Simulated assay, not measured.
Amino acid sequence: MQISFLIHNAYGIGGTIRTTYNLANTLAEQHDVEVVSVLRHRDDPVFRPDPRVRVRHLVDIRKGTPGYEGGSPEYRTPATTFPRAEGRYDQYNALTDRRIAEHLRAVDADVVVGTRPGLNVHLARQTRRGPLRVGQEHLTLDSHPTALRRQLRAVYPRLDALTTTTEADARAYRAKMRLPGVRIEAVPNPVPA
């Protein structure tokens, strides 16, 4: 099975990044796995992926490198697909919107996994027909502003599944979001000891 993770920045440090690599590394024992980072701000990831996990990026923001794209007009134009109410909105733009859309239209995977609400919106709207679309929630529904929750309610029915980190949050999504046909499961630790 081919599994593709879409993550904000696989080259940084943080809980979502660590969790994504842990899960990708474990899945790579039996599957073909890639981690696609929207942004790349350093040469090498902080967390080391298993050699079987492919890591690539969509937009290079490493200043002083031949691939640097942070100065392009498209990079300075606000995003229209990535939700304005999402906490990372200021780091998204027309270039990231376009590259994410191109990636999702062409991705050759059986399962595509988004790792934050704004990326899950892209996933729900733009993934080509075929792959299962799985949104991951690494925060909680109640931590999101009302405007973001409204947008998620409108597009999340296009997902096949949504995972949360707690059963309480899974219940909140089931009760408050009313997502018919979307499997909502709590996955507290995807890679147990």
Results as ranks from 00 to 15, higher is better:
147 A>H: 12
115 T>D: 05
131 P>G: 06
119 L>W: 10
154 A>P: 02
102 E>L: 11
144 H>G: 01
152 L>V: 14
130 G>F: 04
104 L>W: 07
131 P>R: 08
151 Q>H: 15
126 Q>D: 15
140 T>A: 09
107 V>D: 00
153 R>Y: 07
136 Q>W: 14
130 G>P: 10
157 P>S: 10
110 D>R: 02
121 V>W: 08
130 G>C: 07
130 G>N: 08
100 I>V: 15
136 Q>I: 09
109 A>C: 00
155 V>H: 15
149 R>V: 14
128 R>T: 10
144 H>P: 00
136 Q>F: 12
136 Q>T: 12
131 P>W: 08
143 S>Q: 14
128 R>V: 12
119 L>H: 10
132 L>Y: 06
106 A>Y: 02
107 V>I: 05
152 L>N: 10
159 L>C: 03
103 H>R: 13
156 Y>L: 02
130 G>T: 09
140 T>F: 01
111 V>I: 15
156 Y>V: 01
110 D>E: 15
135 G>R: 01
100 I>G: 03
155 V>L: 14
135 G>P: 07
141 L>W: 10
101 A>I: 13
137 E>L: 05
134 V>T: 05
106 A>V: 01
135 G>D: 07
121 V>M: 10
155 V>M: 11
111 V>Q: 07
99 R>E: 11
155 V>N: 10
101 A>V: 15
127 T>M: 10
147 A>C: 12
142 D>L: 14
160 D>G: 05
158 R>K: 13
108 D>R: 01
102 E>T: 09
138 H>R: 03
132 L>W: 08
126 Q>Y: 12
118 G>Y: 00
160 D>L: 02
133 R>W: 09
99 R>D: 03
151 Q>I: 13
100 I>R: 06
110 D>G: 15
117 P>L: 03
